[in-house]
Design a protein around this nucleic acid. Structure first.
Length: 255
DNA sequence: AATGGTACCAACCGCGGAACC
DNA sequence: CGGTTCCGCGGTTGGTACCAT
């Protein structure tokens, strides 16, 4: 809680004491709240009207609920947020006993990340259904567990890239993503390091042998094996150049 | 046990719109 | 009709609790 303090007008700020809660509750229950600006004076509180209103709306008014949100409440919030965005007061109207502030906090701390994860999952599944990975049917040597995170990230990248295609781009073009360069402008050349790391552009996630695996490791974990990096300085230079180019390429398409 | 990082959440702040003068 | 006041909303802040190292 924020420790109590006083502003330049002598108004108290910070956490509410039980005494203040009692005063405000008693006053509002007896007189209502026709004018929040007058209430602090009339109730004998050194608080702003705004602060009183917030305290009442979020904690003191009757039937206000606290504690865990039920599954039904969570579903309502997710549903309404998907339809209307950050309309917390509207959500509060649909959830008796919940304040907009509490819903907002719950969204940011619990639901937002969950919804993001689920939407990414759905998006990746959609991409998978459009073009099942060749790796799953060819060779069968892909190291799934090691490359899962990379798959996820590249899946998101492909989805974003596809959303940046020109209007003329078709599903057919998207469907051939992993098999051709269709999404890449003809003047953009894939980084050499990506090619070296197992034909990135044609078989994006195949790490077929130890050489490919170690190359890939250097790309994504350049500090992993210092001696090797020193011995292979020229190779490393190429990697750095290519990673920079690749970053530029990503920025160009992701913005 | 000490320290740093992170999650949680109550409260604050600024703004826009409605109501009032 | 313009200015002022008040209300409500949504974004942000900051303190506490908890967890990991």
């Amino acid at each position: 809680m924020r420790p109590p303090r006083f502003d330049k007008f002598g108004m108290k700020k910070g956490a509410w004491s039980k005494d203040e809660d009692d005063k405000l509750r008693a006053f509002v229950q007896k007189n209502g709240h026709p004018n929040w600006c007058e209430i602090p004076k009339l109730a004998g509180l050194s608080r702003s009207g705004k602060s009183c209103r917030l305290r009442w709306m979020n904690y003191l008014r009757p039937n206000v609920k606290h504690g865990n949100f039920t599954k039904e409440e969570q579903d309502v919030i997710v549903d309404l947020h998907s339809k209307h965005g950050n309309k917390w007061s509207m959500m509060a109207a649909q959830l008796p006993g919940r304040s907009d502030n509490e819903i907002k906090n719950y969204w940011h701390t619990h639901l937002k990340s969950r919804v993001n994860i689920e939407s990414n999952k759905i998006r990746n599944e959609q991409i998978e259904s459009i073009e099942p990975r060749k790796a799953n049917t060819e060779g069968g040597s892909m190291k799934l567990s090691n490359s899962k995170m990379i798959q996820d990230e590249v899946g998101i990248l492909l989805a974003v890239l596809s959303s940046n295609l020109p209007p003329s781009s078709s599903t057919r073009e998207l469907s051939s993503l992993s098999g051709s360069d269709n999404i890449v402008p003809s003047d953009v050349t894939p980084p050499r390091s990506c090619k070296q790391a197992g034909s990135f552009w044609t078989e994006p996630f195949l790490l077929d042998n130890e050489i490919h695996a170690s190359s890939n490791e250097k790309i994504f974990s350049p500090l992993g094996s210092t001696n090797d990096l020193i011995c292979q300085a020229s190779f490393q230079d190429n990697i750095i150049d290519d990673v920079l180019l690749w970053s530029t390429f990503e920025s160009y398409f992701l913005i």
